[in-house]
Design a protein around this nucleic acid. Structure first.
Lengths: 206, 206
DNA sequence: TTAAATTTCGACTGTTCATTCGGAATATTA
DNA sequence: TAATATTCCGAATGAACAGTCGAAATTTAA
């Protein structure tokens, strides 16, 4: 028989291992994210990791899944809220930007890790469920906004990709020293979406 | 003594090996881009690869270097040309888009491979020289264009990153089936840069 | 308190792969 | 043609690392 406490302790140990995996990833990069490293960081013997997880892959997939779940939950909030598509869209992007800024290491992992683990079959990418939902919501908002004239008309798919690239680059590429402020993002979005002439920054007249 | 012909033949063999490496990368992904695979594809014995290259890394770095060199050469042309910054900027992006569309496999490699080979010290990333020059030119054009009012004012760094993300996503991420036309890019750019109200698509009035 | 269940783990196994070894084959030059 | 230089290569080497084994330690239940 298994008590509730035991289940909770197991879960805590799983979390410890996940945390260790993330630490290894951060400190040494994905290359050196070995099971030996995770064992070291999490304070378990290597064999014990396999008591809690089936494989190394499962550990990283679990990290990705919970991460995207978090993102999705922060986005989901805006679905029912009142407000124009444009307002919602920008709120969501700013929320995500804030989440990323608050835990850059974790979200860095979220955005980089999938590229390093190619060739996973669909069913081994459970995080994509939330990822796709999120893109779906954003794209829907974009399209609704366009038909209301709140955004310039363009291919929403293209624009989303640009936004994805922006977020990616914003936090994880190029010169690592340069932090980018929320204000910077704000300006960027304002300018990017001012194409329809609805709001125009006074500085950019001429 | 080494004749000119010998030098040329050596160079041809190096090219053969590089071509083989790219084929392996395309057909099997970076995971399986092994020296055995390259030997197989290029038609040399494995040990022979080491007669022409010091290491596996050198092979891939050489591919990256020549690729970015090509991109740079296509960009460089526009420096001396007459025309507004905005016109030049868009011409350059369209040129690059065309290059990518013409040899998607190669440029896919160019954009994806660096992410898979992290931890290289600066001096082992010679392609960055051309990469940086290109970004410098583009950024310069953006900034000149902004002060002429041809672009909306925004952080050129941010915008470039969005463009980078766009190109990346455009060709190599997401649903692989969907090709994106040059016209699509054209529309996107037009809309993206219509923020200052200089050119306004009639459809997006309201 | 002792048998059963749960948790832990260092050492081992097996595989993959870059790189090297030692010399063979081929081409060039004298 | 013989000596030398260049080009070629399959088999061995060694390192890295995911995953397994068999048993020990600890906790729980009777």
């Amino acid at each position: 028989m298994v008590t509730q406490r035991q289940l909770e302790e197991r879960e805590m140990r799983r979390q410890r291992i996940l945390k260790g995996a993330l630490q290894v990833y951060q400190q040494e990069g994905i290359e050196k994210a070995t099971m030996d490293g995770i064992a070291r960081e999490s304070g378990f013997g290597k064999a014990t990791l396999y008591y809690y997880f089936d494989s190394k892959e499962e550990i990283f997939v679990e990290l990705l899944r919970t991460g995207w779940e978090q993102i999705w939950e922060s986005v989901e909030v805006y679905i029912g809220v009142t407000g124009s598509p444009r307002e919602k869209f920008i709120s969501i992007l700013k929320t995500i930007a804030r989440m990323i800024a608050d835990d850059r290491a974790f979200f860095g992992f979220l955005f980089q890790a999938p590229a390093q683990m190619p060739n996973l079959p669909e069913e081994r990418q459970p995080w994509r469920v939330h990822q796709n939902r999120m893109y779906g919501v954003l794209r829907g908002l974009l399209e609704d906004g366009m038909s209301l004239g709140e955004f310039p008309r363009m291919e929403s798919r293209l624009l989303l990709r640009a936004m994805g690239g922006l977020f990616h680059g914003l936090f994880f590429l190029g010169t690592p020293g340069k932090e980018i402020s929320e204000e910077g993002i704000d300006n960027f979005l304002t300018n990017l979406f001012s194409g329809s002439g609805l709001t125009m920054d006074s500085e950019s007249r001429y």
